[in-house]
Design a protein around this nucleic acid. Structure first.
Lengths: 101, 101
DNA sequence: TTTATATTTAGACAAATATCTAAATATATG
DNA sequence: CATATATTTAGATATTTGTCTAAATATAAA
């Protein structure tokens, strides 16, 4: 849990996560989206991996990074204990499948 | 959003939030639950307030701190963009009112 | 095998953070 | 008013963090 919040406590790292929503990317492709150097981005990727928010797979000289959504559920559960009625964002439910519960 | 993740990136502060689930408490009562000094806890309370996770109300010499759950919805929305099926923790829904949707 | 490309590792450094003690402020009470 | 209690503010310090440059590693291509 500590590693998770630590990983999320940085705008660049949160932006990396959002970037990867559109699909897996190599370390270099990810770095191209930011104004930081590649070693800096590499370090951010490492922290995200430590938090298990990302997985990586080496293909030739490239390393592809992917979102790992399983850990997000743990975070979601933690956050939900603080919602007043425990009914998260009902305005979004329609597009998310709640109507079939 | 930055202040929010910053506030959550500390075990003591997360514990303070959990402590306040059981009801409002004074700064002193909160401090009694931890091994830190009162100034340290005061500082943590300040950061939680900056993130709008807490509100405070002065009553005489005491200051009561309360959870502010409205900001949690914003966080929940952010987290949910990373859930695979956008259906958070269905195993918990029964106790949380989803069956009435 | 030499060179180019992709990525990480190592080391340095400034800025941010968590903590403490001491002092300040505010309120209550004798 | 003088003292006690509750809390914060100020200042110091050790640790952590984000960033960079330079070097190392690994793979591909000429």
């Amino acid at each position: 849990m500590n590693a998770l919040f630590k990983a999320l406590n940085d705008k660049t790292r949160r932006d990396i996560l959002e970037l990867l929503k559109s699909g897996d990317k190599t370390a270099g492709e990810i770095a191209d989206h930011f104004q930081h150097t590649k070693p800096t981005i590499s370090h951010h990727l490492d922290l995200l991996k430590q938090a298990e928010l990302l997985t990586s797979e080496k293909k030739g000289q490239f390393i592809y990074y992917s979102l790992n959504t399983t850990v997000v559920d743990e975070l979601l559960k933690w956050v939900m204990q603080f919602t007043s009625n425990s009914k998260p964002l009902p305005e979004d439910n329609k597009t998310l499948g709640y109507e079939n519960n």
